[in-house]
């Protein structure tokens, strides 16, 4: 067991917790045991929803994936150069929690992430389709026949267009996957610059790959990347990539957007 002091907004909570607890677990028990109102965003508790970001001992992280044991070691800051050493007070580990930056403040560490969601273009899809490696060997099973029939009969009732059967069956062999980015806003908070920001530009980068260059969606997305608040403002700190819990590497994606930019201006 570890004794810790959680500091939020100058309020201090002394707790006993296990090294394997996450910071979010500890906040949940404070709320339960001490019956205190304590404001923080949380939802999935496993790093999928992106709501529970905070600045945890000076470094942006998801509270549901940051264990108490992680905070007992020296950690690299978002600059990649300095380190933060664990601090103790009378043998108690200090856990200082601050709200993410570039979001409207609500209370304690709860924020309203409007800026983050505004930075992601509406045409940036959250999903991708991946062809299976062995697609040629596969054929849809007959359950998809039945499913197709049901969808057609539903469509007839609501006068919607009926999907083409061949396309429907072919699509049933494609794997659908949600994109890696969980829209948590850690990158936006960690970036010292003021502009559209890493999450939005990474979303543009991902979306460009899904749209053909001759489409208006593609050129509109590219225009957003080249706009005044776009890639030109990135100063290559790479704090975004260091804090990203999903390995999206927004910093690298911004550099790749620059490559498209220079290719276009050369031609």
């Amino acid at each position: 067991m570890i004794n810790a002091i959680i500091i939020i907004n100058n309020r201090r909570y002394t707790v006993e917790c296990s090294e394997s607890n996450t910071v979010l677990d500890v906040l949940e028990s404070i709320r339960k045991e001490k019956k205190l109102s304590l404001h923080y965003r949380h939802s999935c508790h496993h790093g999928s929803c992106g709501t529970c970001g905070a600045i945890i001992n000076c470094i942006e992280g998801l509270m549901c994936l940051t264990k108490i044991s992680d905070l007992m070691h020296e950690r690299k800051t978002t600059s990649g150069k300095d380190t933060v050493a664990p601090q103790y007070e009378n043998g108690k580990l200090i856990i200082n929690l601050e709200p993410l930056k570039k979001a409207a403040y609500i209370a304690d560490i709860a924020v309203y992430p409007a800026q983050l969601f505004e930075s992601i273009p509406e045409t940036a899809s959250y999903k991708r389709s991946i062809e299976r490696a062995n697609a040629s060997q596969l054929e849809p099973d007959s359950s998809y026949d039945e499913l197709y029939k049901q969808i057609c009969s539903d469509a007839a009732q609501t006068q919607e267009p009926v999907p083409d059967k061949h396309v429907f069956m072919k699509n049933s062999l494609i794997r659908n996957k949600l994109e890696l980015c969980i829209e948590c806003g850690l990158c936006l908070s960690a970036c010292p610059e003021e502009f559209r920001g890493p999450a939005g530009l990474a979303a543009i980068h991902t979306a460009l790959a899904k749209n053909k260059p001759e489409t208006s969606t593609y050129s509109n997305l590219l225009a957003l990347a080249y706009a005044e608040d776009g890639i030109a403002q990135c100063k290559r700190h790479f704090a975004c990539s260091r804090v990203c819990p999903q390995g999206v590497a927004p910093g690298r994606r911004i550099q790749e957007l620059r490559a498209i930019d220079s290719k276009n201006s050369n031609t």
Binding site: H39, Y40, R41, H42, S43, C44, H45, H46, S48, C49, T51, A110
Partner: peptide
């Protein structure tokens, strides 16, 4: 009382 879906909904396995 918290963020939307902070009770049971968000913790669903999906």
């Amino acid at each position: 009382k918290g963020e939307l879906t902070s009770g049971t909904t968000g913790r669903h396995h999906g």
